[in-house]
Design a protein around this nucleic acid. Structure first.
Lengths: 204, 204
DNA sequence: ACTCGTCTGGGACGCTTGACCCACTTTCCG
DNA sequence: CGGAAAGTGGGTCAAGCGTCCCAGACGAGT
């Protein structure tokens, strides 16, 4: 094993743990499975991190952090109208899901695990805060880009968007029905776009 | 321990397992925890059921069976229009969730567990089939009651309704935000009711 | 009433788990 | 260049796990 700082090892362990969780589920993320994934001896685990629960907290922070940075570039495609733009974002989100279903399922399992763990129960709140914030920024950007305004508060609409995305993700994970998922995304895009009101052009 | 048939004991164990899962999660549903919940000696477990996995299969069947029977009476309330009726169904569904959050979370965890278990991976498909069927029957009954027709296929609309319900449930479990949930249900009811077209009265 | 199949429950086995100790090696700073 | 600090890894521990055994208690059919 190469020599590396304890903090680096801690991050490597968190990523290895996430890989194990994605492949085999949260309950399979034992200390031995994690160090095997990372290619470390067992003793490195408790040298880098105090306990298994603490490492899992690193994992959820890793997750909520990475989720925030991604998925914003998908808005930049040139759709005809706001409805097509929304459908595009939902569609590329769905493509990400299909490319790596295990990761999305790991997210859900981590959320449920955190809800059951007293020291981690603030994570789901933060997680959904990130989701809603991301959706709100997309809605704002879309409104500016396509010259519309929303007839309901953006936070409420963002909550709707997150719920639709979550529901579609969950349904596809359970059934793997691509056709039903595409139709669902069509209806979801309609539901969100229905709250867009075209702006009267004031200048130009 | 009172004397009882092995089949009765099997069902009692399944219900005890569900109670343990709701309280402490799937990973806590050990053989000892289950028999403690049921008030049985440990040996009764493997007398009534071959293995722990087999018992969990009983649990998921119990779940998908019970979910089907309930929640239909909520349509019978007298709402002014189809939108209010939909909102009412979503609202009472939400009340059920708030009355026993642990049970709903147990449902999600069982779904994810089944997705990871090869012998159980057909359960999520059946589960969502039941959900969509239930939603479809509600939509049909609502259309007949309020004299409207749906401008999209009922199965597609049922999928939308299930996704919205799941998304709202998940969001509330994570954040416990009652206000946001109520607003979300408002928007969800709008989204579904938007596809209702009033029928021209032909007779009477 | 006797017996045989059904049911009970205390105990135990082999295994995996999280945690940890300690002798060893490597790195870095004075 | 020498010693203290940092990192490594093999081995081990108690606890908890699923599973199983077997002697005894029960109840229905003859």
């Amino acid at each position: 094993m190469a020599r590396m700082a304890a903090t680096d090892r801690r991050e490597a362990l968190a990523q290895a743990a996430l890989a194990v969780i994605a492949r085999d589920g949260v309950h399979a993320a034992t200390t031995r499975a994690i160090v095997a994934e990372a290619g470390m001896p067992l003793a490195s685990f408790h040298y880098a991190v105090a306990s298994r629960d603490e490492l899992l907290r690193d994992v959820v922070e890793l997750v909520v952090g990475s989720q925030d940075s991604a998925a914003f570039s998908t808005l930049e495609l040139d759709a005809r109208d706001i409805r097509s733009a929304i459908r595009g974002v939902l569609g590329s989100n769905f493509d990400i899901l299909r490319a790596d279903p295990a990761r999305q399922q790991a997210m859900f399992e981590l959320t449920h695990y955190a809800l059951r763990t007293p020291t981690l129960d603030d994570f789901p709140v933060a997680q959904y805060g990130v989701y809603r914030g991301l959706a709100a920024r997309l809605l704002e950007a879309g409104a500016a880009r396509y010259r519309v305004r929303w007839n309901v508060p953006i936070p409420d609409l963002a909550t709707l968007a997150v719920a639709l995305s979550d529901g579609a993700t969950l349904a596809w994970l359970a059934t793997r029905d691509d056709v039903a998922a595409e139709r669902l995304l069509d209806l979801a895009a309609d539901a969100i776009a229905a709250h867009a009101i075209p702006l009267i052009k004031e200048n130009s």
